[in-house]
Design a protein around this nucleic acid. Structure first.
Ligand SMILES: [Mn+2]
Ligand SMILES: [Mn+2]
Ligand SMILES: [Zn+2]
Ligand SMILES: [Zn+2]
Lengths: 166, 166
DNA sequence: AGTTTATTTAGAATAATTCTTGATAAGCTT
DNA sequence: AAGCTTATCAAGAATTATTCTAAATAAACT
């Protein structure tokens, strides 16, 4: 028994529907890239996605991974996430959320929007602007690194951060 | 009569103070770069700063402009602003604020934080994270472009956007 | 089966930024 | 002032993430 088999019905649109809606095809490569993203709740770079997909599809090229990520992003079924000048990361969470970039372990975690809140609640946007998109990123320490830091730092046991700190 | 002549006193710290505080010097190049930013309330790229400074200091190199912008940023007297994969822009406004990137005219405008508001008001940050920085960017149409768009679009007079739209 | 169109791929190209290296200049020390 | 040390600058090379090009492949359509 297969669920969500959007042949004629109109349940919530699947990734395939979004792709088809643009006259594009859900190819093996695109699905593999999408699955690599859905598989873990992290935010891999294009190269990391490439490495993951390659284990299942050894002949895929990096250019194709870039192409697929762009296509999936354009179709609105994944999101590209940028922070400073670092390589783009990709995220399958379509809910409105911000990102915390941990400078301790290099991880990126989703920060949900509180219910019934809007960015306009805290930002003084002129009323006549039209906003299409907004992106929010925090930099700091994730819960794990923050507590480790609070406990370990007193005896001055500093662990090397994963991020470049000149 | 010169104002803010921080020789021995302790008025609010000048840009020079921040530089000196790091054992660095406020050179002609650094001041020229800083002045180029302060001169206009926009958000130029490194190359745009380079072009502005070059009119007053024809021998300055682009590498030096990059160096100066990095130094000024590290000293906390200007801010680097990033949006998607576009070239970094620089901003002399040290108040906490977001940015609206207008896809009509390519301008970047400051969006102030409403008084007595904090990002935590709308974002559900775990309590044990430690946040060092946060960056917020909106994409859309600035007031000028939004009103022009609302008025002109009906008779389908679309003007070419300054941003690449494939 | 033949035609059109989308997709993939490898490699070249691009563009922003950073790095390297040898001047040049500034600040101290004697 | 002369010498020493360190910071800064400048030109060009190098890096790196990403995009582009062109040819091969595959799917959809007639
Ligand atoms: Mn996310
Ligand atoms: Mn600004
Ligand atoms: Zn962490
Ligand atoms: Zn505008």
């Amino acid at each position: 028994m297969k669920l969500r088999d959007n042949h004629s019905g109109d349940a919530s649109p699947t990734p395939d529907d979004h792709i088809h809606g643009r006259g594009l095809r859900m190819t093996d490569q695109r699905r593999a890239v999408y699955d690599a993203l859905m598989g873990q709740r992290d935010h891999p770079t294009a190269v990391e996605v490439f490495m993951r997909v390659k284990t299942k599809m050894p002949n895929i090229s990096l250019a194709t991974v870039y192409n697929c990520l762009e296509t999936l992003t354009d179709c609105g079924i994944i999101k590209a996430v940028n922070h400073d000048r670092e390589p783009s990361r990709y995220c399958p969470n379509l809910a409105e959320h911000a990102h915390l970039f941990c400078q301790g372990c290099g991880s990126v975690m989703d920060i949900p929007l509180r219910s019934n809140r809007r960015p306009q609640d805290i930002w003084d946007l002129p009323e006549d602007v039209s906003v299409v998109q907004h992106e929010v990123s925090f930099r700091g320490l994730c819960p794990k690194c923050a507590t480790a830091d609070a406990a370990d730092t007193p005896p001055d046991t500093q662990k090397a951060p994963r991020t470049r700190s000149k």
